[in-house]
Design a binder for these strands. Structure first.
Length: 327
DNA sequence: TCTCATGATTCTTT
DNA sequence: AAAGAATCATGAGA
Protein backbone atom coordinates (compact mmCIF):
# COMPACT_ATOMS: atom_id res chain seq x y z
CA UNK A 1 0.00 0.00 0.00
CA UNK A 2 2.75 2.39 0.92
CA UNK A 3 4.66 1.41 -2.16
CA UNK A 4 1.59 2.05 -4.25
CA UNK A 5 1.19 5.47 -2.79
CA UNK A 6 4.76 6.36 -3.36
CA UNK A 7 4.81 5.15 -6.93
CA UNK A 8 1.67 7.09 -7.56
CA UNK A 9 3.15 10.19 -6.02
CA UNK A 10 6.25 9.85 -8.12
CA UNK A 11 4.16 9.58 -11.22
CA UNK A 12 5.41 6.09 -11.91
CA UNK A 13 2.24 4.14 -11.46
CA UNK A 14 -0.14 6.78 -12.67
CA UNK A 15 -2.11 6.74 -15.89
CA UNK A 16 -0.24 5.87 -19.05
CA UNK A 17 1.37 8.36 -21.40
CA UNK A 18 0.65 12.03 -21.28
CA UNK A 19 -0.77 12.20 -17.84
CA UNK A 20 2.11 10.18 -16.60
CA UNK A 21 4.82 12.49 -17.75
CA UNK A 22 2.89 15.40 -16.39
CA UNK A 23 2.79 13.67 -13.06
CA UNK A 24 6.49 13.01 -13.35
CA UNK A 25 7.08 16.66 -14.03
CA UNK A 26 5.00 17.55 -11.04
CA UNK A 27 6.97 15.14 -8.92
CA UNK A 28 10.20 16.62 -10.14
CA UNK A 29 9.03 20.11 -9.44
CA UNK A 30 7.76 19.18 -6.02
CA UNK A 31 10.97 17.46 -5.10
CA UNK A 32 13.12 20.27 -6.30
CA UNK A 33 11.18 22.98 -4.59
CA UNK A 34 11.63 26.02 -6.74
CA UNK A 35 12.43 24.42 -10.04
CA UNK A 36 14.75 26.97 -11.50
CA UNK A 37 17.09 24.95 -13.65
CA UNK A 38 15.01 23.03 -16.07
CA UNK A 39 17.90 21.24 -17.72
CA UNK A 40 18.53 18.89 -14.87
CA UNK A 41 14.86 18.41 -14.38
CA UNK A 42 14.24 17.43 -17.92
CA UNK A 43 17.01 14.92 -17.56
CA UNK A 44 15.45 13.71 -14.37
CA UNK A 45 12.10 13.43 -16.05
CA UNK A 46 13.58 11.43 -18.87
CA UNK A 47 15.06 8.92 -16.49
CA UNK A 48 11.88 8.77 -14.50
CA UNK A 49 9.92 8.08 -17.63
CA UNK A 50 12.33 5.33 -18.48
CA UNK A 51 11.82 3.72 -15.12
CA UNK A 52 8.13 4.17 -15.47
CA UNK A 53 8.02 2.46 -18.83
CA UNK A 54 9.95 -0.50 -17.57
CA UNK A 55 7.70 -0.70 -14.58
CA UNK A 56 4.59 -0.75 -16.68
CA UNK A 57 5.98 -3.25 -19.13
CA UNK A 58 6.94 -5.59 -16.37
CA UNK A 59 3.69 -5.14 -14.56
CA UNK A 60 1.81 -5.99 -17.70
CA UNK A 61 3.94 -9.04 -18.21
CA UNK A 62 3.23 -10.20 -14.72
CA UNK A 63 -0.46 -9.76 -15.12
CA UNK A 64 -0.44 -11.61 -18.36
CA UNK A 65 1.63 -14.40 -16.91
CA UNK A 66 -0.67 -14.57 -13.95
CA UNK A 67 -3.72 -14.89 -16.14
CA UNK A 68 -2.11 -17.47 -18.35
CA UNK A 69 -1.01 -19.51 -15.45
CA UNK A 70 -4.41 -19.30 -13.85
CA UNK A 71 -6.16 -20.53 -16.94
CA UNK A 72 -3.60 -23.24 -17.28
CA UNK A 73 -4.24 -24.45 -13.79
CA UNK A 74 -7.95 -24.20 -14.32
CA UNK A 75 -7.66 -26.37 -17.36
CA UNK A 76 -5.64 -28.87 -15.46
CA UNK A 77 -8.19 -28.97 -12.71
CA UNK A 78 -10.95 -29.36 -15.21
CA UNK A 79 -9.16 -32.27 -16.70
CA UNK A 80 -8.66 -33.78 -13.32
CA UNK A 81 -12.30 -33.30 -12.51
CA UNK A 82 -13.04 -36.12 -14.91
CA UNK A 83 -11.13 -38.54 -12.78
CA UNK A 84 -11.85 -37.18 -9.34
CA UNK A 85 -14.37 -34.83 -7.80
CA UNK A 86 -13.06 -31.30 -7.43
CA UNK A 87 -15.01 -28.87 -5.37
CA UNK A 88 -15.35 -25.24 -6.43
CA UNK A 89 -13.75 -24.36 -3.16
CA UNK A 90 -10.61 -26.15 -4.13
CA UNK A 91 -10.47 -24.30 -7.41
CA UNK A 92 -10.94 -21.07 -5.60
CA UNK A 93 -8.15 -21.95 -3.24
CA UNK A 94 -5.77 -22.72 -6.06
CA UNK A 95 -6.55 -19.47 -7.81
CA UNK A 96 -6.01 -17.63 -4.58
CA UNK A 97 -2.62 -19.21 -4.12
CA UNK A 98 -1.58 -18.30 -7.61
CA UNK A 99 -2.70 -14.72 -7.22
CA UNK A 100 -0.93 -14.36 -3.94
CA UNK A 101 2.28 -15.64 -5.47
CA UNK A 102 2.09 -13.25 -8.31
CA UNK A 103 1.18 -10.30 -6.20
CA UNK A 104 4.18 -10.94 -4.00
CA UNK A 105 6.32 -10.81 -7.10
CA UNK A 106 4.64 -7.60 -8.11
CA UNK A 107 5.37 -6.30 -4.68
CA UNK A 108 9.04 -6.82 -5.23
CA UNK A 109 8.85 -5.13 -8.56
CA UNK A 110 7.25 -2.15 -6.91
CA UNK A 111 9.83 -2.10 -4.21
CA UNK A 112 12.64 -2.15 -6.69
CA UNK A 113 11.02 0.60 -8.65
CA UNK A 114 10.75 2.66 -5.52
CA UNK A 115 14.41 2.14 -4.84
CA UNK A 116 15.22 3.17 -8.36
CA UNK A 117 13.23 6.36 -8.01
CA UNK A 118 14.81 7.15 -4.69
CA UNK A 119 18.26 6.77 -6.12
CA UNK A 120 17.34 8.87 -9.07
CA UNK A 121 16.10 11.56 -6.78
CA UNK A 122 19.10 11.47 -4.58
CA UNK A 123 21.26 11.76 -7.63
CA UNK A 124 19.47 14.56 -9.37
CA UNK A 125 17.84 16.44 -6.61
CA UNK A 126 20.66 16.34 -4.18
CA UNK A 127 20.51 19.65 -2.41
CA UNK A 128 24.25 19.96 -2.47
CA UNK A 129 24.09 20.49 -6.16
CA UNK A 130 22.08 23.60 -5.65
CA UNK A 131 23.85 25.03 -2.71
CA UNK A 132 23.37 28.73 -2.31
CA UNK A 133 25.11 30.83 0.23
CA UNK A 134 22.83 32.39 2.73
CA UNK A 135 22.19 36.06 2.44
CA UNK A 136 24.55 38.37 4.21
CA UNK A 137 21.82 39.40 6.54
CA UNK A 138 21.03 35.82 7.45
CA UNK A 139 24.66 35.07 8.15
CA UNK A 140 24.80 38.16 10.27
CA UNK A 141 21.87 37.10 12.37
CA UNK A 142 23.24 33.62 12.83
CA UNK A 143 26.66 34.89 13.72
CA UNK A 144 25.21 37.32 16.16
CA UNK A 145 23.42 34.54 17.93
CA UNK A 146 26.39 32.26 17.83
CA UNK A 147 28.84 34.72 19.29
CA UNK A 148 26.48 36.02 21.87
CA UNK A 149 25.90 32.47 23.06
CA UNK A 150 29.43 31.37 22.69
CA UNK A 151 29.45 29.67 26.04
CA UNK A 152 26.67 27.41 24.91
CA UNK A 153 25.94 27.78 21.23
CA UNK A 154 23.12 25.27 21.13
CA UNK A 155 19.93 27.08 20.29
CA UNK A 156 16.75 25.52 21.54
CA UNK A 157 14.12 24.37 19.14
CA UNK A 158 12.22 27.61 19.61
CA UNK A 159 15.33 29.67 19.11
CA UNK A 160 16.07 27.78 15.94
CA UNK A 161 12.61 28.40 14.67
CA UNK A 162 12.93 32.04 15.36
CA UNK A 163 16.29 32.24 13.71
CA UNK A 164 14.97 30.33 10.76
CA UNK A 165 12.14 32.77 10.41
CA UNK A 166 14.39 35.76 10.69
CA UNK A 167 16.83 34.39 8.17
CA UNK A 168 14.24 32.98 5.79
CA UNK A 169 15.76 29.54 5.96
CA UNK A 170 14.58 26.25 7.36
CA UNK A 171 15.11 25.00 10.86
CA UNK A 172 17.33 22.20 9.67
CA UNK A 173 19.42 24.73 7.82
CA UNK A 174 19.83 26.56 11.07
CA UNK A 175 20.86 23.30 12.69
CA UNK A 176 23.31 22.63 9.92
CA UNK A 177 24.72 26.08 10.22
CA UNK A 178 25.29 25.75 13.94
CA UNK A 179 26.76 22.31 13.51
CA UNK A 180 29.20 23.59 10.98
CA UNK A 181 29.94 26.71 12.91
CA UNK A 182 30.66 24.96 16.16
CA UNK A 183 33.02 22.49 14.63
CA UNK A 184 34.79 25.03 12.48
CA UNK A 185 35.09 27.51 15.24
CA UNK A 186 36.51 24.92 17.57
CA UNK A 187 38.95 23.76 14.96
CA UNK A 188 40.37 27.14 14.31
CA UNK A 189 39.54 29.69 16.89
CA UNK A 190 42.31 31.94 15.79
CA UNK A 191 40.78 32.38 12.43
CA UNK A 192 37.46 33.33 13.93
CA UNK A 193 38.85 35.61 16.57
CA UNK A 194 38.35 38.74 14.59
CA UNK A 195 34.83 37.78 13.69
CA UNK A 196 34.16 36.89 17.30
CA UNK A 197 35.36 40.28 18.48
CA UNK A 198 33.28 42.01 15.93
CA UNK A 199 30.07 40.30 16.86
CA UNK A 200 30.79 40.38 20.54
CA UNK A 201 31.24 44.11 20.31
CA UNK A 202 28.07 44.40 18.37
CA UNK A 203 26.02 42.47 20.85
CA UNK A 204 27.72 44.25 23.66
CA UNK A 205 26.56 47.55 22.30
CA UNK A 206 23.08 46.20 21.90
CA UNK A 207 23.12 44.80 25.38
CA UNK A 208 24.46 48.03 26.76
CA UNK A 209 21.67 49.92 25.11
CA UNK A 210 19.13 47.54 26.41
CA UNK A 211 20.58 47.70 29.85
CA UNK A 212 20.66 51.44 29.76
CA UNK A 213 17.08 51.58 28.73
CA UNK A 214 16.06 49.15 31.39
CA UNK A 215 17.98 50.54 34.25
CA UNK A 216 17.65 54.20 33.47
CA UNK A 217 18.39 55.31 36.98
CA UNK A 218 21.72 53.92 37.84
CA UNK A 219 24.16 55.86 35.85
CA UNK A 220 26.71 55.72 38.53
CA UNK A 221 28.45 52.46 38.16
CA UNK A 222 29.99 52.26 34.75
CA UNK A 223 29.86 48.66 33.65
CA UNK A 224 33.35 47.62 32.93
CA UNK A 225 33.92 47.68 29.25
CA UNK A 226 31.96 44.73 28.03
CA UNK A 227 34.46 42.89 26.03
CA UNK A 228 38.01 43.83 26.27
CA UNK A 229 39.43 42.03 23.36
CA UNK A 230 39.00 38.31 23.59
CA UNK A 231 35.49 37.31 22.81
CA UNK A 232 36.03 33.60 22.83
CA UNK A 233 34.77 32.66 26.21
CA UNK A 234 34.90 28.95 26.00
CA UNK A 235 38.05 26.99 26.22
CA UNK A 236 39.20 24.55 23.66
CA UNK A 237 39.51 20.92 24.40
CA UNK A 238 43.10 21.69 25.00
CA UNK A 239 45.85 19.38 26.07
CA UNK A 240 44.24 17.59 28.96
CA UNK A 241 42.29 14.87 27.29
CA UNK A 242 43.67 14.98 23.83
CA UNK A 243 40.14 15.44 22.57
CA UNK A 244 39.69 14.95 18.90
CA UNK A 245 43.34 14.95 18.10
CA UNK A 246 44.27 11.35 18.41
CA UNK A 247 42.57 8.13 17.59
CA UNK A 248 41.56 7.87 14.07
CA UNK A 249 41.85 4.38 12.79
CA UNK A 250 41.87 4.51 9.09
CA UNK A 251 39.11 2.24 8.20
CA UNK A 252 38.04 2.12 4.62
CA UNK A 253 34.37 2.95 4.83
CA UNK A 254 32.76 -0.39 4.48
CA UNK A 255 29.25 -0.06 3.31
CA UNK A 256 27.51 -2.95 4.91
CA UNK A 257 25.41 -4.46 2.24
CA UNK A 258 21.89 -4.73 3.50
CA UNK A 259 20.50 -6.46 0.50
CA UNK A 260 17.10 -5.04 -0.06
CA UNK A 261 15.28 -8.17 -0.99
CA UNK A 262 15.39 -7.53 -4.64
CA UNK A 263 16.19 -10.76 -6.32
CA UNK A 264 13.30 -10.76 -8.67
CA UNK A 265 14.88 -12.09 -11.78
CA UNK A 266 15.89 -10.06 -14.67
CA UNK A 267 13.17 -7.49 -14.38
CA UNK A 268 14.77 -6.08 -11.36
CA UNK A 269 18.15 -6.30 -12.96
CA UNK A 270 16.82 -4.32 -15.81
CA UNK A 271 15.77 -1.62 -13.47
CA UNK A 272 19.07 -1.67 -11.75
CA UNK A 273 20.75 -1.47 -15.05
CA UNK A 274 18.81 1.59 -15.97
CA UNK A 275 19.85 3.23 -12.78
CA UNK A 276 23.45 2.27 -13.00
CA UNK A 277 23.44 3.67 -16.47
CA UNK A 278 21.66 6.81 -15.64
CA UNK A 279 22.86 7.64 -12.23
CA UNK A 280 25.87 5.55 -11.61
CA UNK A 281 25.03 5.25 -7.98
CA UNK A 282 24.75 1.52 -8.01
CA UNK A 283 26.28 1.35 -4.58
CA UNK A 284 23.40 3.18 -3.12
CA UNK A 285 21.16 0.32 -4.08
CA UNK A 286 22.45 -1.57 -1.15
CA UNK A 287 21.86 0.81 1.66
CA UNK A 288 18.34 1.88 1.43
CA UNK A 289 18.02 4.52 4.05
CA UNK A 290 18.43 7.59 2.09
CA UNK A 291 17.75 11.18 2.44
CA UNK A 292 16.47 11.53 5.91
CA UNK A 293 16.90 15.13 6.81
CA UNK A 294 17.49 14.66 10.45
CA UNK A 295 16.90 17.84 12.27
CA UNK A 296 19.22 18.55 15.07
CA UNK A 297 18.15 20.06 18.27
CA UNK A 298 18.57 20.06 21.99
CA UNK A 299 21.69 20.95 23.78
CA UNK A 300 24.58 18.96 24.81
CA UNK A 301 27.71 20.29 26.25
CA UNK A 302 29.69 22.70 24.21
CA UNK A 303 32.53 21.73 26.45
CA UNK A 304 32.49 19.43 29.39
CA UNK A 305 33.01 22.14 31.96
CA UNK A 306 30.33 24.52 30.90
CA UNK A 307 31.44 27.36 33.00
CA UNK A 308 28.77 29.87 32.31
CA UNK A 309 31.21 32.67 31.99
CA UNK A 310 28.93 34.65 29.81
CA UNK A 311 30.67 36.07 26.87
CA UNK A 312 30.24 39.66 27.58
CA UNK A 313 29.57 39.30 31.19
CA UNK A 314 29.63 42.56 32.97
CA UNK A 315 31.64 41.05 35.69
CA UNK A 316 35.24 41.85 35.52
CA UNK A 317 37.80 39.55 36.88
CA UNK A 318 39.58 36.41 35.83
CA UNK A 319 36.89 35.43 33.46
CA UNK A 320 39.04 35.71 30.41
CA UNK A 321 42.03 33.84 31.54
CA UNK A 322 43.70 32.57 28.51
CA UNK A 323 43.47 35.20 25.92
CA UNK A 324 46.52 34.03 24.17
CA UNK A 325 45.72 35.75 21.00
CA UNK A 326 48.79 35.94 18.95
CA UNK A 327 48.71 39.67 18.65
C1' DT B 1 41.46 27.87 -12.94
C1' DC B 2 43.02 27.66 -8.29
C1' DT B 3 41.91 28.13 -3.73
C1' DC B 4 39.29 28.91 0.12
C1' DA B 5 34.63 29.43 2.17
C1' DT B 6 30.45 27.30 3.09
C1' DG B 7 26.04 24.66 3.08
C1' DA B 8 24.76 19.85 3.07
C1' DT B 9 25.36 15.00 3.73
C1' DT B 10 27.19 10.90 5.74
C1' DC B 11 29.38 8.28 9.11
C1' DT B 12 30.90 7.88 14.00
C1' DT B 13 30.62 8.72 18.70
C1' DT B 14 28.32 9.54 22.89
C1' DA C 1 18.71 10.65 18.91
C1' DA C 2 21.73 14.43 18.80
C1' DA C 3 26.27 16.22 18.30
C1' DG C 4 30.87 15.71 16.39
C1' DA C 5 33.86 14.81 12.60
C1' DA C 6 34.90 14.00 7.97
C1' DT C 7 33.77 14.75 3.48
C1' DC C 8 31.48 16.35 -0.64
C1' DA C 9 30.12 19.77 -3.96
C1' DT C 10 29.40 24.28 -5.18
C1' DG C 11 30.03 29.46 -4.80
C1' DA C 12 32.97 33.21 -5.18
C1' DG C 13 37.04 35.90 -5.21
C1' DA C 14 41.95 36.28 -6.67
Amino acid sequence: MRLDNMLLAEGVSGPEKGGGSAAAAAAAAAAGGAGDNSIEHSDYRAKLTQIRQIYHTELEKYEQACNEFTTHVMNLLREQSRTRPISPKEIERMVGIIHRKFSSIQMQLKQSTCEAVMILRSRFLDARRKRRNFSKQATEILNEYFYSHLSNPYPSEEAKEELAKKCSITVSQVSNWFGNKRIRYKKNIGKFQEEANLYAAKTAVTAAHAAAAAVQNSQTNSPTTPNSGSAGSFSLPHSGDMGFLGMQSLNGHSYQGAQVGANVQSQVDTLRHVISQTAGYSDALRGNTMYSPHGLSANGGWQDATTPSSVISLTEGPGSVHSDTSN
